[in-house]
Amino acid sequence: MSKYQGHFISNHPEPLMKEDVLPNKGVIVDKADHSFYIEDASGSGAYIFLGVVFSAIAIYPLYKYNLKEGGILYVLFIILLLISLFMIFYGIFANKEYKKVILDRMNGTITYPDSFFRKPLKGKFKDLKVIISISGGDGYSTKEYLKFVNTFSPRLVDSLKTVSYDDPYQHWSFMVWYMDKNRPLPPGTAFDEYRQQDFERRKADRFPKPLYPSNISTPEATPEQQKERERFWKEW
C-alpha cells in the first residue's frame, strides 16, 4: 500500500466526452455538469453475472460426481454456492442510489459507496484520504488501482473502496480538477455546454485562486476567456 495521495492535479485526465454520459447506453457516468459529477459504482450486472457463473460451477460437480455429503469438497462447493447466491441477491436488491460516487463541486463534498448494504459515506473532498494500491509479487508490479480509505466513518476492520481500474493518476487528477471550483471545468465535450456559465460564476467572484495545486496547465476554454482571467490576476 502506498502513502496517501495529495490533492493535486498531476496528470492530464482523459477527456470526458458527451457520449460517456447518460442518456447514452453502456456508460457509468449518470451526470456531468458544472455542479455535479455522478458515477454509477454499483456493478450490479457484474455481481449477478458472476453469481450465476459461480453457482453453475458449484452445482455441476455436486450432481455430476455425486460428492459425499459432509466431505471436504462437498462443503467447499456448498460454501461457493451460498456465496454465489448472495452475489445474485446483492446485485438485484442492493439500493442503487447508495452505490454512486457523487462529486458536489459547489459544496466541496464527496459521497461514495460503503460496503454491501450500508448507507453511503459522505464528507469534505479535501479531507478524503486516497491511495494508489499496487498489486504484484516480489520485485514486480502488475496493476495500480485508485482506492478510497474510509475517511468519514472509520471502523476497526475496514476495507478500501476501489474507484478506478484504469490509470489511477489520471482518474484522481480528474476528480481534483473537477472539485476545484476555482478552475475551469476539466477537458471533454461533456462539459462544453456548462463552461460559459461556470466562467461567469468565477468571473463574478473575481477569479479566486485555485483550491488545489496543479503540475499541469488548466486554461480557460477559449483564449479570450484566458486573457480575461489573467487580467484579473494581474490587478491583484
Rank of each mutant, 00 (worst) to 15 (best):
Thr111His: 02
Phe36Met: 14
Phe36Gly: 01
Phe8Pro: 03
Gly108Asn: 11
Asn11Thr: 10
Lys68Gln: 13
Ala46His: 04
Phe93Ser: 04
Gly91Ala: 08
His12Met: 15
Leu67Phe: 07
Leu50Ile: 14
Phe36Asn: 06
Phe86Gly: 04
Leu121Phe: 12
Glu97Lys: 13
Phe89Asp: 01
Ser84Thr: 07
Arg118Met: 14
Tyr60Cys: 06
Ser84Cys: 09
Ile57Gln: 05
Ser10Glu: 14
Ser42Phe: 08
His12Val: 13
Pro61Asp: 00
Ile79Arg: 01
Tyr74Gln: 03
Glu14Met: 09
Asn107Thr: 03
Ile59Glu: 04
Asp104Ala: 10
Ile48Met: 12
Glu39Trp: 12
Gly45Glu: 04
Tyr112Cys: 09
Tyr47Gln: 11
Glu14Asn: 12
Ile83His: 05
Leu50His: 03
Leu22Arg: 15
Phe89Thr: 03
Val75Ala: 11
Gly51Trp: 03
Leu76His: 01
Ile79Lys: 02
Lys25Ala: 15
Leu62Thr: 02
Glu97Ser: 14
Lys25Asp: 11
Ile78Cys: 11
Phe54Asp: 01
Glu19Trp: 04
Gly26Val: 02
Glu19Tyr: 04
Gly43Ala: 05
Gly43Ser: 09
Leu76Gln: 09
Gly51Glu: 08
Lys99Ile: 05
Ile92Met: 09
Ser35Ala: 13
Thr109Tyr: 11
Phe89Val: 08
Glu97Pro: 00
Asp104Trp: 07
Glu97Trp: 02
Met17Ala: 10
Ser84Leu: 09
Leu82Lys: 01
